[in-house]
């Protein structure tokens, strides 16, 4: 596999909570590079720092130390270098959640187009893009349906469409297949891999699902806040 641009560059990132006897080191000097087209998994037992690392890459959590670059932009170097982190997330990062987290009061199509609305797209263009993504993910026929009436697989595909709506190059997924059966889990992973290749994006997923380990390019193990193996 030919490696593309470095989309995620994490250098010496550490994160601790509390001080003194109550200090907990969630991340200890993490170095990680993820290239365009790569699909990687963050593995490890509960409390190993997977979600903390995902939150740091997603600009949700400020590390205690280290440097973070996303898609070539330095965003953290001891302090946040950008004040508009939400705009940064909107433009560069797509999130896929374990429980899909679709907004229950919006239809499938609106759940996708809301991201584009926030990004400043016109309503018509947003609807067209949402429809295109839903069709691509084979849930276009459910565009006008509210999440409560979607099956688990359909909801997860709508959530993927939402994550991809604004063409982000970094997609962070937290247990993306946890709510799916084995067959659907494989399909979702195939889909993410296809998207990573076609859109030159990288996908970083936290997962415990051993059935899909073979779908990743790299398995990154974390233990006690350190990279155990790569």
């Amino acid at each position: 596999m030919t490696l593309g641009d470095i989309l995620v560059n994490v250098q010496g990132v550490a994160k601790h909570y509390g001080e003194g006897e109550t200090r907990v080191d969630a991340l200890r000097s993490i170095d990680l590079r993820v290239h365009a087209g790569e699909v990687i998994a963050l593995l490890g037992p509960s409390g190993s720092g997977k979600t903390t690392l995902l939150n740091v890459i997603g600009c949700i959590l400020a590390p205690t130390a280290g440097r973070v670059e996303l898609d070539g932009d330095a965003v953290f170097d001891g302090i946040w270098l950008r004040s508009d982190l939400r705009r940064l997330r909107l433009d560069k990062i797509g999130f896929i959640f374990q429980a899909h987290n679709l907004l229950p009061f919006l239809t499938a199509e609106e759940n996708v187009s809301v991201v584009l609305d926030l990004a400043g797209w016109s309503a018509a263009k947003g609807r067209a893009r949402a429809r295109e993504l839903l069709d691509y993910l084979e849930v276009g026929h459910r565009a006008k349906v509210k999440p409560a009436l979607l099956s688990g697989g359909e909801a997860q595909r709508v959530a993927i469409a939402r994550a991809l709506a604004n063409r982000p190059r970094i997609i962070l997924a937290d247990e993306p297949t946890a709510a799916l059966d084995s067959g659907r889990a494989q399909l979702v992973m195939d889909l993410l891999r296809k998207l990573a290749t076609e859109q030159e994006a990288c996908i970083i997923a936290v997962t415990h699902d051993e059935k899909i380990f073979d779908r990743f390019d790299r398995l990154i193990h974390l233990r006690d806040g350190r990279l155990a193996d790569a």
């Binding site: 909107l90 959640f97 907004l103 809301v114 991201v115």
Partner: peptide, 16 residues
């Protein structure tokens, strides 16, 4: 609150 957290995560500004 959970929906608001989702909105913030996907990039919704405070004004929204």
């Amino acid at each position: 609150l959970k929906q608001i957290a989702t909105l913030k995560l996907i990039g919704a500004p405070d004004r929204t």
